[in-house]
Design a protein around this nucleic acid. Structure first.
Lengths: 196, 196
DNA sequence: GTCTATAGTACGATAGAC
DNA sequence: GTCTATCGTACTATAGAC
Protein backbone atom coordinates (compact mmCIF):
# COMPACT_ATOMS: atom_id res chain seq x y z
CA UNK A 1 0.00 0.00 0.00
CA UNK A 2 1.17 3.50 -0.75
CA UNK A 3 1.73 5.79 2.18
CA UNK A 4 0.97 8.85 0.09
CA UNK A 5 -0.82 11.71 1.75
CA UNK A 6 -4.38 11.82 0.52
CA UNK A 7 -5.70 14.73 -1.48
CA UNK A 8 -8.00 15.63 1.37
CA UNK A 9 -5.15 15.75 3.87
CA UNK A 10 -2.95 17.78 1.55
CA UNK A 11 -5.71 20.34 1.17
CA UNK A 12 -6.23 20.53 4.93
CA UNK A 13 -2.53 20.82 5.73
CA UNK A 14 -1.95 23.55 3.20
CA UNK A 15 -5.10 25.43 4.19
CA UNK A 16 -4.23 25.28 7.89
CA UNK A 17 -0.78 26.70 7.24
CA UNK A 18 -2.05 29.50 5.02
CA UNK A 19 -4.97 30.45 7.25
CA UNK A 20 -2.63 30.74 10.23
CA UNK A 21 -0.02 32.70 8.30
CA UNK A 22 -2.15 35.02 6.19
CA UNK A 23 -5.61 34.79 7.65
CA UNK A 24 -8.95 33.48 6.46
CA UNK A 25 -9.89 36.28 4.10
CA UNK A 26 -6.46 36.76 2.57
CA UNK A 27 -6.18 33.10 1.68
CA UNK A 28 -7.95 32.18 -1.55
CA UNK A 29 -9.13 28.72 -2.46
CA UNK A 30 -7.08 28.96 -5.64
CA UNK A 31 -3.90 29.47 -3.63
CA UNK A 32 -4.70 26.53 -1.36
CA UNK A 33 -5.37 24.27 -4.33
CA UNK A 34 -2.29 25.38 -6.23
CA UNK A 35 0.03 24.79 -3.25
CA UNK A 36 -1.53 21.44 -2.44
CA UNK A 37 -1.63 20.30 -6.05
CA UNK A 38 -5.32 19.58 -5.98
CA UNK A 39 -8.09 20.49 -8.39
CA UNK A 40 -11.01 22.62 -7.36
CA UNK A 41 -13.42 19.75 -7.88
CA UNK A 42 -11.78 17.75 -5.10
CA UNK A 43 -12.13 20.56 -2.61
CA UNK A 44 -15.85 20.83 -3.18
CA UNK A 45 -16.14 17.05 -3.16
CA UNK A 46 -14.64 16.80 0.32
CA UNK A 47 -16.03 20.09 1.61
CA UNK A 48 -19.37 20.63 -0.15
CA UNK A 49 -20.09 23.77 1.83
CA UNK A 50 -16.89 25.35 0.60
CA UNK A 51 -14.37 27.58 2.31
CA UNK A 52 -16.10 27.86 5.67
CA UNK A 53 -16.41 24.10 6.06
CA UNK A 54 -12.74 23.69 5.20
CA UNK A 55 -11.69 26.33 7.72
CA UNK A 56 -13.86 24.73 10.39
CA UNK A 57 -12.09 21.41 9.89
CA UNK A 58 -8.69 23.17 10.05
CA UNK A 59 -9.57 24.87 13.34
CA UNK A 60 -10.92 21.67 14.91
CA UNK A 61 -7.82 19.71 13.94
CA UNK A 62 -5.58 22.50 15.26
CA UNK A 63 -7.48 22.44 18.55
CA UNK A 64 -6.75 18.73 18.99
CA UNK A 65 -3.16 18.92 17.77
CA UNK A 66 -2.19 21.85 19.97
CA UNK A 67 -3.91 20.34 23.00
CA UNK A 68 -1.91 17.16 22.46
CA UNK A 69 1.29 19.17 22.12
CA UNK A 70 0.72 21.12 25.33
CA UNK A 71 -0.14 17.97 27.28
CA UNK A 72 3.00 16.22 26.04
CA UNK A 73 5.17 19.11 27.10
CA UNK A 74 3.55 19.63 30.49
CA UNK A 75 3.72 15.97 31.45
CA UNK A 76 7.50 15.97 31.16
CA UNK A 77 8.01 17.98 34.35
CA UNK A 78 6.05 17.41 37.56
CA UNK A 79 6.26 20.91 39.00
CA UNK A 80 3.51 22.92 37.25
CA UNK A 81 5.39 26.20 37.43
CA UNK A 82 8.54 24.84 35.88
CA UNK A 83 6.69 22.73 33.29
CA UNK A 84 4.65 25.69 32.05
CA UNK A 85 7.67 27.95 31.96
CA UNK A 86 9.55 25.34 29.99
CA UNK A 87 6.66 24.81 27.61
CA UNK A 88 6.42 28.49 26.67
CA UNK A 89 10.11 28.57 25.88
CA UNK A 90 9.61 25.57 23.64
CA UNK A 91 6.87 27.30 21.66
CA UNK A 92 9.82 28.97 20.01
CA UNK A 93 11.77 26.68 17.76
CA UNK A 94 15.30 25.82 18.71
CA UNK A 95 17.13 26.24 15.45
CA UNK A 96 16.46 29.88 14.71
CA UNK A 97 18.14 33.20 15.27
CA UNK A 98 20.98 32.89 12.82
CA UNK A 99 22.93 36.01 12.06
CA UNK A 100 20.03 37.55 10.23
CA UNK A 101 16.90 38.36 12.16
CA UNK A 102 14.81 37.77 9.07
CA UNK A 103 14.20 34.08 9.59
CA UNK A 104 13.93 34.29 13.33
CA UNK A 105 10.23 33.88 13.80
CA UNK A 106 9.12 31.38 11.24
CA UNK A 107 9.88 28.98 13.99
CA UNK A 108 6.86 29.41 16.21
CA UNK A 109 5.56 25.91 16.58
CA UNK A 110 2.12 26.81 17.84
CA UNK A 111 0.61 29.54 15.77
CA UNK A 112 -2.75 29.11 17.38
CA UNK A 113 -6.03 30.20 15.85
CA UNK A 114 -5.58 33.74 17.09
CA UNK A 115 -5.83 35.36 13.67
CA UNK A 116 -8.90 33.47 12.48
CA UNK A 117 -10.54 34.12 15.84
CA UNK A 118 -10.22 37.89 15.48
CA UNK A 119 -11.18 37.85 11.80
CA UNK A 120 -14.40 36.00 12.50
CA UNK A 121 -15.33 37.15 16.01
CA UNK A 122 -17.87 39.64 14.70
CA UNK A 123 -18.80 38.19 11.32
CA UNK A 124 -18.96 34.39 11.42
CA UNK A 125 -20.49 32.62 14.38
CA UNK A 126 -19.56 29.14 13.21
CA UNK A 127 -15.85 29.83 13.01
CA UNK A 128 -15.90 32.07 16.07
CA UNK A 129 -17.33 29.27 18.19
CA UNK A 130 -14.74 26.83 16.88
CA UNK A 131 -11.95 29.20 17.94
CA UNK A 132 -13.62 29.75 21.30
CA UNK A 133 -13.67 26.00 21.85
CA UNK A 134 -9.97 25.78 21.03
CA UNK A 135 -9.04 28.53 23.48
CA UNK A 136 -11.13 26.89 26.20
CA UNK A 137 -9.57 23.51 25.63
CA UNK A 138 -6.02 24.87 25.83
CA UNK A 139 -6.77 26.98 28.88
CA UNK A 140 -8.17 23.91 30.57
CA UNK A 141 -4.91 22.02 30.10
CA UNK A 142 -3.06 24.68 32.11
CA UNK A 143 -5.78 24.69 34.75
CA UNK A 144 -5.61 20.90 35.14
CA UNK A 145 -1.86 21.00 35.56
CA UNK A 146 -2.18 23.65 38.26
CA UNK A 147 -4.86 21.63 40.05
CA UNK A 148 -2.57 18.59 40.05
CA UNK A 149 0.14 20.81 41.46
CA UNK A 150 -2.00 21.68 44.47
CA UNK A 151 -3.56 25.01 43.50
CA UNK A 152 -7.13 25.41 44.63
CA UNK A 153 -9.91 25.36 42.05
CA UNK A 154 -10.50 29.09 41.79
CA UNK A 155 -6.83 29.99 41.58
CA UNK A 156 -6.18 27.28 39.03
CA UNK A 157 -8.99 28.49 36.79
CA UNK A 158 -8.00 32.12 37.01
CA UNK A 159 -4.34 31.44 36.39
CA UNK A 160 -5.17 29.08 33.52
CA UNK A 161 -6.90 31.96 31.81
CA UNK A 162 -4.07 34.36 32.64
CA UNK A 163 -1.53 31.99 31.11
CA UNK A 164 -3.63 31.42 28.01
CA UNK A 165 -4.02 35.20 27.60
CA UNK A 166 -0.32 35.81 28.04
CA UNK A 167 0.67 33.12 25.57
CA UNK A 168 -1.75 34.32 22.91
CA UNK A 169 -0.68 37.93 23.40
CA UNK A 170 3.00 37.12 23.36
CA UNK A 171 2.59 35.16 20.14
CA UNK A 172 0.99 38.22 18.55
CA UNK A 173 3.82 40.46 19.75
CA UNK A 174 6.50 37.99 18.71
CA UNK A 175 5.08 37.59 15.22
CA UNK A 176 4.55 41.32 14.80
CA UNK A 177 8.00 42.30 16.01
CA UNK A 178 9.64 39.24 14.41
CA UNK A 179 11.40 38.62 17.67
CA UNK A 180 11.45 35.84 20.25
CA UNK A 181 11.71 38.33 23.08
CA UNK A 182 8.03 38.62 24.07
CA UNK A 183 7.67 34.86 24.46
CA UNK A 184 10.98 34.59 26.32
CA UNK A 185 10.03 37.41 28.67
CA UNK A 186 6.69 35.93 29.66
CA UNK A 187 8.32 32.53 30.16
CA UNK A 188 10.83 34.19 32.46
CA UNK A 189 8.03 35.74 34.51
CA UNK A 190 5.95 32.57 34.92
CA UNK A 191 7.55 31.60 38.25
CA UNK A 192 6.69 34.98 39.77
CA UNK A 193 3.17 34.98 38.40
CA UNK A 194 2.44 31.49 39.68
CA UNK A 195 4.09 32.07 43.05
CA UNK A 196 0.91 32.56 45.02
CA UNK B 1 -18.23 78.02 10.15
CA UNK B 2 -19.61 74.54 9.87
CA UNK B 3 -18.28 72.01 12.31
CA UNK B 4 -18.95 69.19 9.89
CA UNK B 5 -16.52 66.33 9.84
CA UNK B 6 -14.46 66.45 6.69
CA UNK B 7 -14.72 63.76 4.04
CA UNK B 8 -11.17 62.68 4.80
CA UNK B 9 -11.90 62.25 8.50
CA UNK B 10 -15.11 60.38 7.84
CA UNK B 11 -13.23 57.93 5.61
CA UNK B 12 -10.54 57.44 8.24
CA UNK B 13 -12.97 56.97 11.11
CA UNK B 14 -15.06 54.44 9.22
CA UNK B 15 -12.01 52.60 7.90
CA UNK B 16 -10.45 52.38 11.36
CA UNK B 17 -13.61 50.93 12.82
CA UNK B 18 -14.05 48.38 10.05
CA UNK B 19 -10.40 47.31 9.96
CA UNK B 20 -10.45 46.69 13.70
CA UNK B 21 -13.75 44.84 13.59
CA UNK B 22 -13.42 42.78 10.41
CA UNK B 23 -9.77 42.99 9.48
CA UNK B 24 -7.81 44.49 6.61
CA UNK B 25 -8.60 41.94 3.94
CA UNK B 26 -12.26 41.49 4.78
CA UNK B 27 -12.93 45.21 4.57
CA UNK B 28 -13.47 46.47 1.04
CA UNK B 29 -13.00 50.04 -0.08
CA UNK B 30 -16.56 50.02 -1.34
CA UNK B 31 -17.86 49.22 2.13
CA UNK B 32 -15.76 51.97 3.69
CA UNK B 33 -16.98 54.52 1.15
CA UNK B 34 -20.60 53.47 1.45
CA UNK B 35 -20.61 53.73 5.25
CA UNK B 36 -18.78 57.05 5.24
CA UNK B 37 -20.88 58.51 2.44
CA UNK B 38 -17.91 59.34 0.30
CA UNK B 39 -17.21 58.74 -3.38
CA UNK B 40 -14.33 56.62 -4.58
CA UNK B 41 -12.66 59.62 -6.17
CA UNK B 42 -12.22 61.29 -2.80
CA UNK B 43 -10.51 58.28 -1.31
CA UNK B 44 -7.91 58.18 -4.05
CA UNK B 45 -7.55 61.95 -3.88
CA UNK B 46 -6.61 61.83 -0.20
CA UNK B 47 -4.81 58.48 -0.33
CA UNK B 48 -3.25 58.20 -3.80
CA UNK B 49 -1.56 54.93 -2.96
CA UNK B 50 -4.87 53.37 -2.09
CA UNK B 51 -5.90 50.91 0.58
CA UNK B 52 -2.48 50.38 2.13
CA UNK B 53 -1.89 54.10 2.59
CA UNK B 54 -5.31 54.47 4.18
CA UNK B 55 -4.68 51.58 6.58
CA UNK B 56 -1.28 53.01 7.50
CA UNK B 57 -2.89 56.28 8.48
CA UNK B 58 -5.53 54.44 10.52
CA UNK B 59 -2.88 52.48 12.41
CA UNK B 60 -0.76 55.55 13.12
CA UNK B 61 -3.74 57.48 14.44
CA UNK B 62 -4.79 54.53 16.59
CA UNK B 63 -1.28 54.36 18.02
CA UNK B 64 -1.47 57.97 19.14
CA UNK B 65 -5.06 57.80 20.35
CA UNK B 66 -4.59 54.65 22.42
CA UNK B 67 -1.32 55.94 23.88
CA UNK B 68 -3.12 59.08 24.96
CA UNK B 69 -5.94 57.02 26.49
CA UNK B 70 -3.59 54.80 28.47
CA UNK B 71 -1.63 57.81 29.76
CA UNK B 72 -4.80 59.56 30.85
CA UNK B 73 -5.96 56.50 32.77
CA UNK B 74 -2.62 55.74 34.40
CA UNK B 75 -2.06 59.29 35.57
CA UNK B 76 -5.23 59.20 37.66
CA UNK B 77 -3.73 56.90 40.30
CA UNK B 78 -0.22 57.25 41.67
CA UNK B 79 0.41 53.64 42.62
CA UNK B 80 1.44 51.90 39.39
CA UNK B 81 -0.03 48.54 40.38
CA UNK B 82 -3.43 49.95 41.22
CA UNK B 83 -3.48 52.31 38.23
CA UNK B 84 -2.72 49.54 35.74
CA UNK B 85 -5.25 47.20 37.31
CA UNK B 86 -7.84 49.93 37.16
CA UNK B 87 -6.98 50.74 33.55
CA UNK B 88 -7.49 47.17 32.36
CA UNK B 89 -10.89 47.05 34.01
CA UNK B 90 -11.79 50.25 32.20
CA UNK B 91 -10.90 48.78 28.81
CA UNK B 92 -14.29 47.17 29.19
CA UNK B 93 -17.16 49.58 28.84
CA UNK B 94 -19.37 50.26 31.81
CA UNK B 95 -22.80 49.99 30.32
CA UNK B 96 -22.80 46.44 29.04
CA UNK B 97 -23.89 43.03 30.22
CA UNK B 98 -27.60 43.44 30.14
CA UNK B 99 -29.67 40.33 30.54
CA UNK B 100 -28.61 39.04 27.17
CA UNK B 101 -24.95 38.21 26.64
CA UNK B 102 -25.22 39.06 22.98
CA UNK B 103 -24.27 42.71 23.24
CA UNK B 104 -21.77 42.30 25.99
CA UNK B 105 -18.52 42.81 24.15
CA UNK B 106 -19.17 45.53 21.65
CA UNK B 107 -18.01 47.71 24.46
CA UNK B 108 -14.27 47.17 24.34
CA UNK B 109 -12.90 50.66 24.17
CA UNK B 110 -9.45 49.78 22.94
CA UNK B 111 -9.59 47.29 20.13
CA UNK B 112 -5.93 47.70 19.38
CA UNK B 113 -4.30 46.83 16.07
CA UNK B 114 -4.01 43.20 17.02
CA UNK B 115 -5.94 41.89 14.03
CA UNK B 116 -4.18 43.96 11.38
CA UNK B 117 -0.85 43.08 12.96
CA UNK B 118 -1.46 39.36 12.56
CA UNK B 119 -2.92 39.73 9.08
CA UNK B 120 0.11 41.61 7.81
CA UNK B 121 2.95 40.18 9.90
CA UNK B 122 4.08 37.89 7.11
CA UNK B 123 2.80 39.66 4.01
CA UNK B 124 3.11 43.44 4.31
CA UNK B 125 6.18 45.00 5.88
CA UNK B 126 4.82 48.53 5.83
CA UNK B 127 1.75 47.76 7.87
CA UNK B 128 3.58 45.24 10.06
CA UNK B 129 6.09 47.89 11.11
CA UNK B 130 3.32 50.36 11.87
CA UNK B 131 1.69 47.82 14.20
CA UNK B 132 5.04 47.03 15.77
CA UNK B 133 5.53 50.71 16.51
CA UNK B 134 2.11 50.89 18.15
CA UNK B 135 2.78 47.91 20.40
CA UNK B 136 6.16 49.35 21.40
CA UNK B 137 4.66 52.72 22.21
CA UNK B 138 1.96 51.25 24.42
CA UNK B 139 4.34 48.88 26.17
CA UNK B 140 6.56 51.84 26.91
CA UNK B 141 3.75 53.65 28.70
CA UNK B 142 3.44 50.78 31.17
CA UNK B 143 7.21 50.62 31.58
CA UNK B 144 7.43 54.34 32.31
CA UNK B 145 4.71 54.09 34.94
CA UNK B 146 6.53 51.23 36.64
CA UNK B 147 9.82 53.18 36.59
CA UNK B 148 8.11 56.12 38.24
CA UNK B 149 6.76 53.72 40.83
CA UNK B 150 10.25 52.65 41.80
CA UNK B 151 10.79 49.46 39.79
CA UNK B 152 14.30 49.07 38.45
CA UNK B 153 14.91 49.43 34.72
CA UNK B 154 15.11 45.76 33.83
CA UNK B 155 12.05 44.76 35.84
CA UNK B 156 10.05 47.67 34.46
CA UNK B 157 10.88 46.75 30.88
CA UNK B 158 10.12 43.08 31.34
CA UNK B 159 6.87 43.72 33.17
CA UNK B 160 5.85 46.34 30.60
CA UNK B 161 6.07 43.67 27.94
CA UNK B 162 4.27 41.13 30.10
CA UNK B 163 1.41 43.54 30.68
CA UNK B 164 1.19 44.45 27.01
CA UNK B 165 1.12 40.74 26.10
CA UNK B 166 -1.56 39.99 28.67
CA UNK B 167 -3.76 42.86 27.57
CA UNK B 168 -3.51 41.96 23.89
CA UNK B 169 -4.15 38.30 24.60
CA UNK B 170 -7.08 38.99 26.91
CA UNK B 171 -8.66 41.24 24.29
CA UNK B 172 -8.45 38.38 21.79
CA UNK B 173 -10.02 35.96 24.25
CA UNK B 174 -12.70 38.44 25.30
CA UNK B 175 -13.70 39.18 21.73
CA UNK B 176 -13.65 35.52 20.74
CA UNK B 177 -15.66 34.34 23.72
CA UNK B 178 -17.84 37.46 23.73
CA UNK B 179 -17.22 37.74 27.43
CA UNK B 180 -15.60 40.27 29.74
CA UNK B 181 -14.16 37.53 31.90
CA UNK B 182 -10.65 37.26 30.40
CA UNK B 183 -10.03 41.00 30.82
CA UNK B 184 -11.49 40.99 34.32
CA UNK B 185 -9.39 38.00 35.36
CA UNK B 186 -6.10 39.51 34.23
CA UNK B 187 -6.97 42.79 35.92
CA UNK B 188 -7.61 40.86 39.11
CA UNK B 189 -4.19 39.22 38.87
CA UNK B 190 -2.20 42.39 38.19
CA UNK B 191 -1.40 43.05 41.89
CA UNK B 192 0.12 39.57 42.25
CA UNK B 193 2.06 39.78 39.01
CA UNK B 194 3.54 43.16 39.90
CA UNK B 195 4.26 42.24 43.50
CA UNK B 196 7.98 41.69 43.05
C1' DG C 1 -11.70 68.95 -5.08
C1' DT C 2 -15.84 65.94 -6.20
C1' DC C 3 -17.96 62.40 -8.48
C1' DT C 4 -19.15 58.38 -11.92
C1' DA C 5 -18.09 54.83 -15.00
C1' DT C 6 -15.39 51.23 -15.93
C1' DA C 7 -11.19 48.56 -16.59
C1' DG C 8 -8.81 44.47 -15.07
C1' DT C 9 -8.31 40.92 -11.93
C1' DA C 10 -9.36 37.52 -8.40
C1' DC C 11 -12.68 35.61 -5.70
C1' DG C 12 -16.06 31.61 -4.22
C1' DA C 13 -18.94 28.50 -6.26
C1' DT C 14 -21.12 25.36 -9.79
C1' DA C 15 -21.86 22.26 -13.77
C1' DG C 16 -20.81 18.51 -16.09
C1' DA C 17 -17.43 15.54 -18.76
C1' DC C 18 -14.68 11.66 -17.72
C1' DG D 1 -13.71 10.38 -7.26
C1' DT D 2 -11.04 13.55 -10.40
C1' DC D 3 -10.66 17.32 -13.20
C1' DT D 4 -11.69 21.67 -16.20
C1' DA D 5 -14.39 25.38 -17.84
C1' DT D 6 -16.99 28.92 -16.59
C1' DC D 7 -20.49 31.74 -14.09
C1' DG D 8 -21.54 35.78 -11.29
C1' DT D 9 -19.76 38.86 -8.09
C1' DA D 10 -16.59 41.64 -5.63
C1' DC D 11 -12.33 43.57 -5.38
C1' DT D 12 -8.58 47.51 -6.15
C1' DA D 13 -7.49 50.93 -9.05
C1' DT D 14 -7.82 54.36 -12.89
C1' DA D 15 -9.61 57.71 -16.25
C1' DG D 16 -11.75 61.61 -17.07
C1' DA D 17 -15.98 64.73 -16.83
C1' DC D 18 -17.46 68.47 -13.99
Amino acid sequence: MDEEISTRDRIINTATRLFQLQGYHATGLNQILKESNAPKGSLYYYFPKGKEELALECINLTEVLVEKTIREKLVKIDDPVESIRNFIEEIIGNTNLEKNEKLSLNSIKIVSVNLIALETSSTNETLRKACQSAFNTWRNVYTEKLLEGGFNKEKAETLGMVIESMVEGAIVLSLTTKSDTPLLKIAEQIPFILDQ
